[in-house]
């Protein structure tokens, strides 16, 4: 049996999870929630993480019913993400690894999402849509790499949604994306927005600028409601994501789609992707908010795979990195 503890804190969530051979033993998490209209800044987010990380660690061990001696490896997020929050989490991971005399393992955050999605859904070799506040990528596995087939050329889809939420002062509790999703259900009028698919890539910054201006004009003149804008924004950006995912599937001859990342728990995105999959005779895999949204277990799971294939990270090499592409990692645990 191999038990891995995973530390995640690359953005506004801090989570610590423990995995024993594919079984999630515990996965507590805290979210730094800012007031409506405000994003989360690196130093404030790091302060939040510093204040709660040791309590979360205690919870993770207690809920799993384990002692430090039962753990085989300490995994943490090496990147990508915000520098200050990443350092906070890495510091605690390095310290407990040394106190407990356990090996340390730096994990790519994106790989964590993919491996957690594969574990929970049992998808075998899916085309992966990874959509969150910081990342938007279409990924397929080939020859020991998770290869990026398409991605955003500017901001992430979740960043576009979050920043739109700030413009019209939608609450960040539990998350701006969740609240947009609920409001979108009440939208009835489709406001046409730019549709910006560029080959296999997508762009969201122009859509954001356009809808920011539209919001200011159309809401004050009563031409549409905030709910209409939420609906229109979701329909537009999700259509773009479904389009590039379908094209990647056609390229790879793949019959499986796995959606991971925080935006992946949006049920409207899952529904639209499901329609496309049904038309192609393909299968859709998705997870709920426990595993889609950043969490510690996903780092533990990727760490488990890496550790079992013989990888460890020496302390000297355990620096964090804000940029760390999915295809930089050699996948030593798959054929």
């Amino acid at each position: 049996m191999t038990v891995v503890i995973g530390f995640e804190g690359s953005a506004n969530k801090i989570g610590i999870g423990i995995i024993r051979d594919g079984e999630v033993l515990s996965n507590p998490r805290r979210t730094y929630i800012t007031p409506p209209g405000q994003g989360f800044m690196p130093s404030d987010t790091a302060r939040h993480h510093r204040a709660v990380i040791l309590t979360v660690l205690k919870e993770a061990l207690e809920q799993a019913g384990l002692k430090p001696a039962d753990i085989d490896c300490v995994a943490y997020t090496k990147g990508p993400g915000m520098g200050a929050p990443l350092v906070t989490v890495a510091l605690v991971a390095r310290t407990v690894a040394q106190l407990w005399g356990k090996p340390l393992l730096g994990v790519n955050h994106c790989i964590g999402h993919i491996e957690m999605g594969r574990l929970i859904t049992k998808a075998n070799n899916p085309t992966v849509l990874y959509v969150s506040g910081g990342n938007t990528q279409v990924i397929a596995y080939s020859e020991r790499r998770y290869r990026i087939f398409g991605e955003t050329i500017d901001i992430a889809v979740g960043n576009c949604l979050d920043r739109f939420a700030r413009v019209i002062k939608i609450s960040n509790d539990p998350s701006p994306g969740y609240n947009i999703e609920q409001m979108a259900k009440k939208g009835s009028q489709y406001v046409e927005l730019p549709y910006t698919v560029k080959g296999m890539d997508v762009s969201f910054s122009g859509i954001l600028s356009y809808i920011e201006e539209a919001a200011n004009k159309m809401l004050s003149s009563g031409q549409c409601t905030a709910e209409d804008l939420c609906f229109s924004l979701q329909e537009t950006v999700f259509s773009m994501l479904v389009e590039i995912t379908e094209r990647a599937m056609a390229h790879c001859g793949s019959q499986e789609v796995l959606i991971v990342g925080g935006v992946g728990c949006n049920l409207r995105l899952q529904e639209m992707m499901g329609v496309m999959c049904q038309e192609r005779g393909a299968k859709l895999f998705a997870t709920d908010e426990r595993f889609c949204i950043d969490n510690g277990a996903m780092i533990a799971q990727a760490g488990w795979e890496m550790f079992r294939s013989g990888q460890v990270t020496e302390l000297e090499d355990s620096w964090i990195t804000q940029r760390y592409r999915t295809d930089e990692v050699e996948v030593t645990w798959r054929d």
Binding site: L54, L57, K58, P68, T88, V92, T95, V96, L99, G101
Partner: peptide
């Protein structure tokens, strides 16, 4: 943070 971690999860 390192000192607090040592206090709560130490000694080595």
């Amino acid at each position: 943070l390192v000192l607090e971690t040592m206090e709560m999860f130490g000694p080595p």
